[in-house]
Write a protein that binds this DNA or RNA. Structure first.
Length: 441
RNA sequence: GUGGCCGUAGCUCAGUUAGGCAGAGCACCUGGUUGUGGUCCAGGAUGUCGCGGGUUCAAAUCCCGUCGGCCACCCCA
């Protein structure tokens, strides 16, 4: 009989303890931050009717969608993000929930695209969104959430780049290029990569005049402090309603972010941030890690005021963000922020003598009842080998009880990061472990 | 989806140009006397060379296919 080769699909991965532990910690931190703003948890199915998802993201997401016929002949698809299912969810349940509605949602999503570092076919997003208000306070809060999130994750160097789609739309109106917005966005997006001249020739090939190109590049080339950029905007984007709305939104968001006490350099107005999924309407943002710019955005989002209108007549504008868990973990791995040792229990109990198994089981459970995490070695191997195991695993304390200690009613507590050990009364073990762990931390 | 590079021990890789017994470092296991890890010393085990086929007396090496990874385009978390 031949064995089946164990393997995983392209873009689908197993998670080992080290990364899974980091993943759980990131999720825990994000959950705490989201909750601190009043977001509440929801969940939705991985599979939806295709009509719910199809045509909602972009041509690209349509192409990448995992879509098939289920056993009952239904045309179904796996979600490619958590925002479109949210729009369906809110249209279906808004009566019960009321607005504004703030929710967070963590789960896997699927896109059948080509893989690369930090880019998988199955990946996890951790979203937060505010539905049912057009108030720019929600836009401000969204950016502040992102800021607090990365601060809480202890990732010191990050910048949230934000923009309003209305800026570029306003300019395009002024230039009568509204119909070319997709193509212009695409070229602009490459500015950093191919330079102003590259963008110029692309736009020219697309039929834009030199004058039009000059104005587009003038907007895209804006740099410097946030306030300087804002000051030069009116002259470039014109004073159409759209342009004025964009400038107004940006001004309000910047003021709000500042009022929230967020450091200026963490939130950067970046007029080249304009892409993202087709459903975005106003504010858009992407978050980059300064140390790893080419891993791409680790947290993006924006305002989508018309998305729910596909499923309901009720007006349900929304704004939110999406934390890319897999990308973030990949970045943390590269930055050496994954602690392999975090995966083990604090206390190690060697199984000193095999004929006292029950005693060790009881000891371990007593320590757990006292709030410690405890790993009991399952075999009565020689003590040296057991200690070596504990050392490799990174337990912080070993509670060693041999025949002599059992008889004396004592236990030895050994700190594994040094070689110090101390003898304590059996009854005091848990308390002493807590004290030692607390002192170290 | 298109194009390029890559896949050898648990890990990082050498060996592929020019076919000729599958290697190194780290990790692992045992020992350095009876109950104590990280250092040191001695010894040891380890491979469907991603998978399938072809060429050849002989394939890790050459050819074809396939799966997976990385990079670029594209797109994005």
């Amino acid at each position: 009989m031949s064995i089946i080769q164990p393997r995983t699909l392209k873009g689908f991965r197993d998670q080992l303890p080290a990364t899974m532990t980091a993943r759980e910690q990131v999720i825990e931190t994000a959950r705490r931050v989201y909750r601190s703003f009043g977001f509440t948890p929801i969940d939705t199915p991985a599979l939806e009717y295709s009509e719910i998802l199809f045509g909602k993201g972009s041509d690209e997401t349509d192409k990448q969608m995992y879509r098939f016929e289920d056993n009952g002949g239904r045309d179904v698809a796996m979600r490619f993000d958590l925002t479109v299912p949210l729009a369906r969810f809110i249209a279906q349940h808004v009566g019960k929930l009321g607005t504004p509605f703030k929710r967070y949602h963590v789960g896997p999503v699927w896109r059948g695209e080509n893989t690369q570092r930090g880019r998988y076919r199955e990946f996890t997003q951790f979203d937060f969104d505010t539905i049912g208000t057009e108030s720019l306070v929600a836009d401000v809060e969204t950016l502040v959430v992102v800021h607090d999130l990365f601060a809480a994750l202890d990732i010191s160097e990050f910048v949230v780049h934000f923009n309003s789609r209305d800026l570029l739309n306003g300019l395009l109106e002024k230039l009568s290029l509204e119909t070319e917005s997709e193509a212009v966005l695409r070229s602009l997006d490459k500015l950093a990569k191919i330079g102003a001249d590259g963008v110029r020739s692309e736009l020219r090939d697309g039929g834009a005049s030199d004058g039009q190109v000059d104005e587009i590049l003038a907007l895209a080339g804006l740099g410097g402090a946030n306030d300087e950029i804002v000051a030069s905007l009116p002259a470039i984007v014109g004073d159409s309603d759209t342009a004025r709305r964009g400038i107004g939104a940006i001004t309000t968001v910047l003021e709000g972010v500042r009022a929230s006490g967020v450091i200026e350099k963490r939130v950067k107005l970046d007029v080249s941030i304009a892409r993202g999924l087709a459903y975005y309407t106003g504010t858009v943002f992407e978050t980059f890690l300064t140390a790893l710019p080419d891993i791409g955005s680790v947290c993006s989002g924006g305002r989508y005021d018309d998305l729910a209108s596909l499923y309901t007549k009720q007006r349900l504008p929304g704004i939110g963000g999406s934390l890319g868990l897999d990308r973030l973990i990949a970045a943390m791995e590269e930055l050496g922020k994954i602690d392999e040792r975090a995966a083990t229990a604090q206390v190690f109990v060697p199984l000193f003598s095999s004929d006292r198994v029950s005693d060790y089981l009881r000891l371990s459970e007593e320590l757990r009842s006292a709030g410690l995490s405890v790993e009991l070695y399952p075999e009565g191997r020689k003590l040296g080998a057991q200690m070596k195991y504990a050392d490799r695993r990174g337990h912080r304390l070993a509670v060693i009880v041999g025949d002599a200690e059992w008889e004396a009613g004592t236990a030895q507590i050994k700190k594994l990061d040094t070689t110090e050990s101390e003898e304590v009364a059996y009854a005091d073990v848990a308390a002493r472990c807590h004290a030692l762990l607390g002192a170290e931390a």
